[in-house]
Amino acid sequence: MPSLITTPPERADADPRPELAIHEGRVLLTGSRCGDCGYPQAVNPPRCPICGSHSIAPATFGPKGTVFSSTVLRIPVPDRTPPFTLAYVDVDEGPRILAHVDGPDEALVPGSEVVLSGWSEHGDPVVRRSGP
């Protein structure tokens, strides 16, 4: 991945990607948690998809997480230059999100520990490896 951006980029309201924000110097995932069943999401819908509760409160998650799986995409897609590394990350106490990986062009081993670290040049959420 060519460059990591550590200040929040401008973001369109309709941008569907998981939204990161900086709180007290840490990069966190923003979203919501159900006030009744505790279900965490990277979005903030009016009802909980699990229990149906209307009691959905904004929440932040991270910065740490664990890789569920990972791959390196090596074919061109519009507006991006391959290769780039992607991972599904189970953010601690939070939801599973897709993120780009800051590091060499190799897939992370499932179970690897990562930390939310900023944004790609395209505004994608980015993680980097933080431990084993």
């Binding site: 941008d15 569907p16 990607r17 998981p18 990277a42 791959t71 995409l73 074919i75 897609v77 507006d79 991006r80 780039f84 992607l86 999100i97 897709l98 993120a99 780009h100 395209h122 994608d124 959420p125």
Partner: peptide, 11 residues
């Protein structure tokens, strides 16, 4: 949310 990150089907 995934597609907007360039997540093509092979990935």
């Amino acid at each position: 949310p995934d597609g907007a990150q360039g997540y093509a089907m092979p990935s």
